[in-house]
Computed example of a mutant assay.
Amino acid sequence: MTIEPAYPNKNMYKDPKFWDDEWVNSREDNITRVQLKNQHSSRNLISRLFFYIEMMYRFFSNLWDAKDKKYDYILVSTPPIFIVFSAFIAKFLFMKKTKIILEVRDLWPDSLIGVKIFDYPIIIRFFRYLEKKMYQNADYIIINSIGFREHIERKLKYPKKIIYIPNGPRAHEIVKEKEHQEEFRVVYTGNIGLAQDVEHIKSIAKLLHENNITFHVIGYGVKAKEFQNYIEKNDLHYVHFQPPATRKESLKLIKSCQLGIAFLNDEEVFSTVLPGKIIDYMTCKTPIIAGVKGTAAKIISANQTGFAFNQSDVHAMVEKIIELKQNPQIIEEMGQNCIKTVEKEFLWEKNIHKLLQIIT
């Protein structure tokens, strides 16, 4: 059960190329797409609250309609937490023997504060109370970043098993050998939004252009248009901006580049996050130059898959890129480390067994 896809925008999914997973398409009858009238993209507090409340109500209604099926488990993801509470209410009322597997993909409401969507202390306190109850009442908790563990454990009354299942590639997606490229290329893929400082991404683009280094960007998000306009206004012809692409297309572009860029804002909540693009870069044997701290920085440094910098230190990042351009052997060594790290820690076929051990 899920809402209609709307990220980064609903119109994108009118293009059939984004429905390219035949395994999923062949099971469309098993997918319930919940229709919502309110818009989640509004930054108005009241509009967003109505969106969340409607979401909880409609998910609960679908669970009510399916109450006779007697599910053994409900696996529910957050954020937002309102979907989770539709499952808890259903369990309390008519699914008492059903166990709740809570998958935490982001720390909420901390992520709302981090991107400065709104700052209403009374509401934030209420959301924190709901967050604590969510962790305490789940039967199992799955996290996709090891950095979430300590935060969640602080909110539990009693110790509870927390299972780490990171985002990761399928085995067939891992790049063993990269094709030789005459042109030195750097890539950024993913969100250019509230969790990334667009000014720093602009600075990276300008500095790479000034050093005649090709920079490919597949971007989306609320700041993507601003970034695109900046490129055009400043005639940064070494920077190539592309609209959202499929996963296959994105991985193909990453594979053709020597280095990948990653950014997160310098907010404490983001120190717990492991951006999916970092794993995608490693999957494509593409070392990372990242303006990140905390969990992501530790993984990059510990596995020698790239270099992590202070988020604002864009000049140091570009200097490192220029240095590495002259040292392809170092890039090759880090690329090998990327593949070793993915196969050891992030391979989906290995990590999915942690979930199977719960439900079988």
Results as ranks from 00 to 15, higher is better:
residue 190 G to Y: 02
residue 197 D to Q: 11
residue 242 Q to L: 15
residue 195 A to P: 05
residue 172 H to Y: 14
residue 147 G to S: 06
residue 148 F to M: 03
residue 231 I to P: 05
residue 172 H to K: 14
residue 243 P to Q: 07
residue 170 R to S: 13
residue 216 H to M: 08
residue 233 K to N: 15
residue 169 P to G: 04
residue 209 H to T: 04
residue 156 L to G: 04
residue 231 I to S: 05
residue 228 Q to T: 14
residue 150 E to K: 15
residue 196 Q to W: 03
residue 221 G to K: 09
residue 181 Q to E: 14
residue 154 R to F: 01
residue 165 I to F: 05
residue 159 P to F: 02
residue 192 I to M: 13
residue 217 V to E: 07
residue 250 S to L: 09
residue 158 Y to K: 15
residue 215 F to E: 06
residue 213 I to Y: 11
residue 146 I to C: 00
residue 238 Y to L: 01
residue 205 A to H: 01
residue 194 L to S: 14
residue 218 I to C: 02
residue 206 K to C: 00
residue 244 P to W: 04
residue 228 Q to F: 05
residue 166 P to N: 01
residue 149 R to D: 13
residue 207 L to F: 02
residue 227 F to K: 00
residue 184 F to K: 09
residue 191 N to R: 08
residue 232 E to N: 12
residue 162 I to F: 01
residue 184 F to Y: 13
residue 231 I to K: 12
residue 225 K to V: 10
residue 187 V to K: 07
residue 160 K to N: 03
residue 236 L to K: 10
residue 164 Y to M: 05
residue 204 I to F: 01
residue 175 V to Q: 10
residue 225 K to F: 07
residue 155 K to F: 05
residue 196 Q to G: 06
residue 187 V to G: 06
residue 249 E to C: 00
residue 249 E to W: 03
residue 236 L to R: 11
residue 145 S to M: 06
residue 218 I to L: 03
residue 230 Y to S: 07
residue 245 A to D: 04
residue 200 H to Y: 15
residue 179 E to Y: 02
residue 227 F to R: 02
residue 215 F to I: 07
residue 172 H to D: 15
residue 207 L to T: 02
residue 226 E to F: 04
residue 192 I to C: 03
residue 183 E to C: 06
residue 210 E to Y: 08
residue 204 I to V: 15
residue 201 I to L: 15
residue 192 I to T: 07
residue 185 R to I: 06
residue 165 I to K: 12
